Simulated assay, not measured.
Amino acid sequence: MKKTLYVLFGILFLVNNTVFAKQEAPKQDFFNKYFFDVHLINSASQIAEAKKNPNQRFLERLMTHSLQYNDVQSINVESNSGLQRLFSINDGFQERVLRKVVYWLNNSDRVNEKIEVSLDNPSNKLTLKMANNEVITIEPAYTCVVHNKREICTTKEGELIVSENRQKVRLKSQSLYDWLNVGWRKEVDGLTKEELLEEALFTRYLYHLGPSYSDFFMCPKINIEPINGDPRRHLIFGSALNYLGHHGGDYDKLTFSISDSNLTGLKVTNVKIEKHISQEESEKQCRTFD
């Protein structure tokens, strides 16, 4: 009798454990899925955060097109004849040069061919000093051939070598290549005549919006179109960023339109302020290059 009871008890125990295990399986699946998904989410956020990390290696950020112009403290360009120029982020006009160079780097293409040669004394050499004290050098890419037992090296059109310590990457950027060869010598420490005229016109029309808009004078842009082809009547479109955004935080963007006629005078037709615009939008507003 006791043996029969033991056998029945054992069967009931096994059945009960089997049912319990089946009931718990979905919970275990949910548990695994929850923590696995959280791990994936954390990994994605870590990748996004790494792109924002100013201490991330320069070449890593270059390959992900995530360089920021304010990560660069200064740019020095020197020719093999000894001519050189320094552009600093602490100078309002020179800062635009930093924006331009970083924009070209972010929009460059990787060249997967072998880096043939790096000259000790290239025709022009660009040195970037970064906020994290890294020093990056950029120089034209060269191709060398031996002719009559003499090595002749010529620059590879549109191609550059970027060096970080002993690591080198070959890039193609026609705009940066042209600037490194010639353009840096022609950079103006101040506004061009066209920019001075644009600022004067912008200030004239901004005045008619009233004093509450006086902070919007960063990176002004203005476009003037005749109304129905009449040279006496024009429609003015203006835009600019607020100066306070330059000292931290996000920029606000002002856009307005005004009809200007020597028959009826000035009339404001539209005014709009866009709060906390993205960094991409602010750079687009300030960009004066392709």
Rank of each mutant, 00 (worst) to 15 (best):
I152A: 04
K172M: 13
R166H: 07
L235T: 07
G245V: 04
Y213L: 06
N262V: 14
W179P: 00
A240N: 00
I224V: 08
R166S: 13
L263N: 04
H208E: 09
S175W: 09
L254P: 03
H208Y: 10
L266H: 04
H208N: 12
S173R: 09
H234L: 06
G229S: 09
E194W: 06
D178Q: 14
R204N: 10
S259I: 14
T269L: 15
S257W: 05
K221G: 13
L197A: 08
D252A: 07
G158A: 06
H247I: 14
K193W: 08
K221C: 11
S212F: 08
L180V: 04
L160S: 00
L191E: 10
N181R: 09
H234V: 00
E164K: 07
I161T: 01
L180H: 02
Y251H: 11
S175P: 12
G265C: 12
D252K: 12
R185W: 03
V182G: 06
E225Q: 15
L160R: 00
N262L: 12
P220N: 09
K172A: 10
H247E: 14
E164F: 06
K253R: 13
Y205T: 00
D189R: 14
N262K: 11
P220I: 06
F217S: 13
R166D: 10
K156T: 12
I161L: 10
R170P: 01
N165W: 15
K156G: 03
L171S: 01
R233W: 13
V162M: 02
T269Q: 12
D230Q: 04
G210S: 02
V182Y: 15
E151M: 13
G265N: 09
I224Q: 03
T255G: 07
L254C: 01
M218T: 12
T203A: 11
E157Q: 14
K221E: 13
N181F: 12
L266K: 13
I152N: 09
L235K: 10
P231G: 08
